[in-house]
């Protein structure tokens, strides 16, 4: 039995310790906002926050998470839309098919938490998530927008 702190709630999960966190989230806990794209830490569709740090959950054994706080796209903001990154994403209509977007948003949120005003190079370094629809131009612009939003009202910038 694993004990996991996911989106502020403790879950007892009857999965083997070496099951990747991605599949524990999706199949044992029922949180499907975190996506499977490659399973080998290449695409970033499965990105979640582990104690605030963007982490590719497909390559992280659930047993190694311990007491760390896991936040998934479902837990990024109370209503699913009000985190500055989500607000910016909505303003710029970023998603196309949307399948990579949970991961893009989680990666961007973690980047902005670490670097509130990232340079273009820092964004390119941090956001290596694959988008086959090709939303990168809007992802870049929306990160700038989110940074500006957070700077304007820092209180909404946490989560």
């Amino acid at each position: 039995m694993l004990k996991l702190n996911i989106n502020g709630k403790i879950h007892d999960v009857d999965a083997d310790a070496d099951t990747p966190l991605l599949w524990v989230l999706r199949e044992w806990v029922g949180l499907t906002g975190t996506k499977y794209g490659c399973g080998i830490a290449q695409c970033g569709a499965c990105t979640v926050h582990i104690d605030g740090v963007a982490t590719r959950s497909c390559s992280l054994p659930a047993g190694s998470v311990g007491a760390a706080k896991v936040v998934t796209i479902e837990g990024l903001s109370p209503d699913g839309l009000s985190h500055p990154v989500q607000v910016a994403w909505a303003q710029l209509d970023v998603p196309q098919c949307g399948y990579c977007q949970s991961g893009q948003i989680m990666a961007a949120a973690s980047l902005l938490r670490e670097k509130p005003r990232p340079t273009e190079a820092e964004v390119a370094d941090a956001i290596t998530n694959i988008c086959r629809c090709g939303t990168y131009q809007r992802v870049k612009a929306a990160i700038d927008t989110a940074a500006a939003l957070s700077a304007a009202s820092p209180a909404t910038g946490k989560a």
Binding site: Y36, I73, D79, Q86, A90, G98, Y99
Partner: peptide, 13 residues
């Protein structure tokens, strides 16, 4: 768009 931002959109998978 909204459900693509919140993780709520249910794809077939």
């Amino acid at each position: 768009t909204a459900d693509k931002l919140s993780g709520k959109l249910v794809y077939a998978i």
